[in-house]
Simulated assay, not measured.
Amino acid sequence: MKKALITGITGQDGAYLAEFLLKKDYEVHGIIRRASMFNTQRIDHLYRDPHDPNARLFLHYGDLSDGTGLRRILEAVQPDEIYNLGAQSHVKVSFDQPEYTADVVGTGTLRLFEAVRDHLKNSNSDIRLYQAGSSEMFGSAAPPQLETTAFEPRSPYAISKVAGYWFARNYREAYDMFIANGILFNHESPLRGETFVTRKITRAVGRIKLGLQDKLFLGNLDAKRDWGFAGDYVEVMWKMLQHSEPDDFVVATGEAHSVREFLEAAFIHVGLDFEKYVEIDQRYFRPTEVDHLLGNPSKAAEKLSWKPKVSFQGLVAMMVDHDMEQAEREKLLVDAGHKVGQEGVANG
């Protein structure tokens, strides 16, 4: 049975990837950060008590800021594949916490590669690594963007991801390590964090439809993104590590839509006009904007036989339907006289 180690397993991508790999009969290990509150909601349905002889999902406390801890986890797990998904992944927050973002996203990747390099040297084992890149690395580069497009990052997050990409390339070439770079364009789902614009929109749609919220405050509605479904994209992460040789791949749908288009589709899905409820707030604009990201996934289609299954309209409908159900549960509690706090509201 193959073993996979996932950093960032409690995030959107980590949860979908863990489920995907378990269905492939992997033993899955995830690195989680210690927190005062439970943060495993996305993977709780996959978890079994480690005393269960059929358990195949195991969690380990660790952090990309702690190289010694990473080495200990590698020694304990002895993985065949590593998926580095851990990050401070919110672009706007990276302007508020640039040093922390660079340490975890950029230097954290280096710590992981160094830990793996030492492990390979001492154990004579074979490990394949997936390094999560981001379309934000392209920044202001003209669309469409593909593997040969020069990076023009426009945020501390994007710059840190570029560093991780080049660490991967360097370690691949210098030490003959199998490291694949996946440059994933925006990928969303009902598991997306509620401070990300797509989920912020679909949560608001459900609450506004049921009278639980009056307004939705957003920033730049004209930014265009190539939006796909996260559940589709974890499959291609796996495919990269099954490929005969490590390479770099753009993962995208090949079509772009503006935030305004996403808004319109989401509100229309429940029979509302978004212009009656949405207001612009300057605090949600980035210091340096990225106007248009559109990926060319032809290399992944040709070499990995991969293409996305969920359309833009299907993605919007999936997320709105999920958040309508969540709003309905919330309204039941409110109607029964309970006060319900909106999760993450303090984070905007």
Rank of each mutant, 00 (worst) to 15 (best):
G30Q: 05
L59D: 00
Y130H: 08
S125Q: 13
G133A: 00
L70P: 09
Y100N: 12
E147I: 02
M37I: 15
S36V: 12
D25F: 11
V104W: 06
S94Y: 00
V91P: 04
S89H: 10
G133Y: 05
D96A: 12
Y61Q: 12
G133I: 03
Q41T: 13
H51C: 10
A76H: 06
Q88T: 08
L85P: 01
E81G: 10
A115L: 10
V77H: 06
L59H: 01
L85K: 01
S134I: 05
V77T: 06
S135C: 14
L57H: 01
I127H: 00
G106T: 10
N84I: 07
R48F: 06
A55R: 04
S140I: 12
V28N: 05
N122F: 10
A102D: 11
N124V: 00
A102E: 09
Q145A: 00
A76V: 07
L120K: 05
H29K: 08
T148L: 04
V105K: 01
G67Q: 14
F151W: 03
I127E: 07
G139A: 00
S36N: 15
I127Y: 09
G106H: 08
I73C: 08
P144H: 00
G67N: 06
T148K: 11
Y26A: 01
S36D: 15
V105H: 03
M137V: 11
G86Y: 02
E75P: 04
R56K: 15
E147Y: 03
P50C: 02
D96R: 14
P143T: 01
D49P: 03
M137R: 08
K92W: 10
F38W: 12
A102P: 04
T109N: 03
S140Q: 10
H51K: 15
V28R: 07
R34M: 10
R72I: 06
F95N: 06
D80E: 11
H90K: 13
Q78W: 09
F113K: 07
D44M: 15
T40A: 14
R72E: 13
E75M: 11
A141V: 05
S89C: 12
T149N: 02
E99Y: 15
P50A: 09
D80M: 05
I127F: 07
Q78N: 12
N124S: 13
D25A: 11
H90G: 09
I73F: 00
P50K: 08
G106M: 04
L146K: 14
N84T: 06
F138M: 00
G106L: 02
E136Q: 14
P144G: 02
T68D: 13
F151Q: 07
E27K: 14
A141M: 06
N54D: 14
Q97H: 15
I43M: 07
D118C: 09
T107V: 14
N54T: 12
R42D: 02
Y47I: 11
G69W: 07
R117E: 13
D49A: 07
G67T: 06
R42W: 09
T148P: 03
H51A: 14
N39D: 15
E114G: 08
M137P: 03
Y130I: 02
R56Y: 01
S36W: 13
A55W: 02
F38C: 13
Y100M: 11
L46V: 08
A132V: 02
